[in-house]
Design a protein around this nucleic acid. Structure first.
Lengths: 345, 345
DNA sequence: CTGAAAGCGCTAACAG
DNA sequence: CTGTTAGCGCTTTCAG
């Protein structure tokens, strides 16, 4: 069917091995012969078969990215950073959506190993069987985690400073006079979101704020909507809400609107991620910014480095900075004018 | 290094080929022997090498999706539909972002061919070299296009009824009294967006509306922002704007806000796609809904079918329905109250 | 610098 | 039902 290297070799009247050398560009080949082979290849419209090459070299020039859902704009941004880095190095990127489902994640990991991808970037699901995890480490397949990672997981990690982000949110809210606060935390056991919660709560505690309602749920638009509905009902007197990510915050805004609660007049909301559309919601969302594209790019470059090095490397851990972006979703309770206005309204 | 089928065969004291049959689950194997092989495989923690298998079977169980940018929420939705369909069939999905750059798209297509992916789903870039295109068709590699496609391209296509969507937008605006209209069309030569423009303009013409300003640019947030700025300056008297997609519309809203133009009071805006966050902007965006997830899923299933069938099939063309979703970004100029209000304002 | 030969790990006729 | 024998298309020693 397709023309093979053998055809090219015959056409150029050289041995298969010489054709191989010429085509893959290794040094020791006579310039004339090489040109002859290349010409023959062009004439026959030759396309090297990477599968065959992969079988002998043991490298596929392919990496995989396992995330929960590409529809979350945060991950879209990460994926783009990852793909750009992969593309720059002539690698391809396999995209996997796990929905945080351990079974689905496991399926991906196994399938990817069988396909001999050169490396994997993923959010470790806490519930990934420790035995499988150990097997993965032992297999020597380069893996970069997009979360802080269990201290000893043995993998490299790249993630934003979630704890600090959580603290920033707490500080911001408390500085503006909020004392009865809600927190939409997302799924239990999620490492990144969990750190945000941890940082948020500890900063709150340090500031003597004890009245905080934490609720868990899915870290999606509808999850945010549902958590907000529930919390708004069980604790109607809260004045501010910290959402573990922007998409949750969007769901929260929607829930507030439907409940006739004005944002930020009656309820202040802080998100996390600083997704592009955070600037476009009504009101625009104040949120913790993290470098999403860089996260994907950095993780991929780290992975690519490990692959190139070949040998088992000592894990490296990168922590990327965060900052608060102030927009219009929070009210300052300490500003007299605003306070008076609200009391009278 | 990794344990191979040969190891398993030795461990189970059978021939390599028998081990192969047992592992790949072909019928003619004694139940006892099969169990013995499977046990050995488990004991040795055997992982079949799909690369090797791929070399002999000629199938990689991998398909690719080439889009312009995964950060466009429309494509994130499409990609998820595609990945779910692939996952359901035990295929993997390689994600490629072309930015509509012909060189980058070409690079992907060649690289994917060399990697022997089983099929490709993509937005054909008009400027993809016709010769390359022909070569692709001739190669017999299954391809599904996410756009109407040049009549004769020889590929299957799956896309929304863009023309009808454009007509819907025109009708809606005209019915509400708009006569001086702008259109942010996106990049020249883009097939999907081009059809929207075509449908929009022809419906406008049929209704006797001649005063329409069309402007081209990138089909991104910043592209929308820039096109809107330019158009708002050159034709400040327009009362409505049809944006070729939602992301453009978001940029348009931002431009209007910055120019002190109120939406929808002074400027009505209609988008296209009905991206999830269209409901959350201020004001919420009225837009043409298209089934994004289904698009990706349907395209993938079509592709998978072609792959399974093996032989070259006659191209199939699927056109998915659209509908207008009315939200808050358009004003009805024919409503007396509103009109009076605006005149006095 | 080039050719000969071996083999990557697996499947697929073909005999027995 | 199982073993024998060829490869899939390519890289990579090893000689010459």
């Amino acid at each position: 069917m397709a023309t093979t290297l053998k055809d090219v070799a015959e056409e150029a009247r050289v041995d298969l091995s010489t054709a191989s050398r010429a085509v893959s560009g290794v040094p020791g080949v006579n310039a004339k012969t090489r040109e002859r082979v290349l010409a023959a290849a062009r004439r026959l419209n030759y396309r090297p078969n990477r599968v065959a090459r992969g079988l002998v070299t043991g490298r596929t020039h392919t990496v995989a990215l396992i995330i929960s859902d590409i529809r979350n704009p945060f991950f879209a941004e990460v994926a783009r950073g990852a793909e750009d880095a992969a593309y720059a190095a002539s690698f391809d990127l396999i995209l996997c959506n796990s929905d945080l489902n351990p079974a689905r994640q496991l399926h991906y990991v196994e399938s990817l190993c069988e396909k001999r991808v050169d490396g994997i970037i993923m959010n470790s699901v806490a519930s990934l069987d420790p035995e499988v995890n150990a097997g993965l480490v032992e297999s020597g397949l380069p893996v970069v985690l997009l979360n802080p990672g269990a201290s000893d997981s043995g993998f490299s990690t790249v993630c934003a400073d979630n704890t600090r982000g959580g603290r920033l949110a707490a500080q911001y809210l408390v500085d503006r006079g909020h004392r009865r606060i809600g927190h939409l935390a997302g799924p239990r056991g999620h490492m990144n979101l969990g750190q945000r919660t941890k940082g948020f709560l500890s900063a709150l505690r340090e500031r003597g704020v004890a009245d905080v309602n934490v609720i868990h749920g899915e870290h999606s638009f509808s999850g945010g909507y549902e958590m907000a509905k529930a919390l708004l009902k069980s604790a109607p007197d809260i004045t501010a809400m910290f959402c573990a990510n922007d998409v949750i915050a969007f769901g929260c805004i929607r829930a507030a609107i439907e409940s006739g609660i004005e944002v930020p007049e009656e309820l202040s909301i802080v998100g996390f991620d600083d997704v592009q559309l955070a600037a476009l919601t009504s009101p625009p969302l104040s949120t913790i910014h993290q470098p999403k594209y860089d996260l994907g790019q950095s993780a991929t470059n780290l992975l690519l480095g490990a692959i190139a090095r070949g040998a088992r490397n000592t894990p490296e851990h990168r922590l990327l900075g965060v900052r608060l972006v102030e927009r219009g979703s929070c009210r300052d309770l300490l500003t007299i004018g605003a306070a008076a206005l609200s009391k009278s309204g």
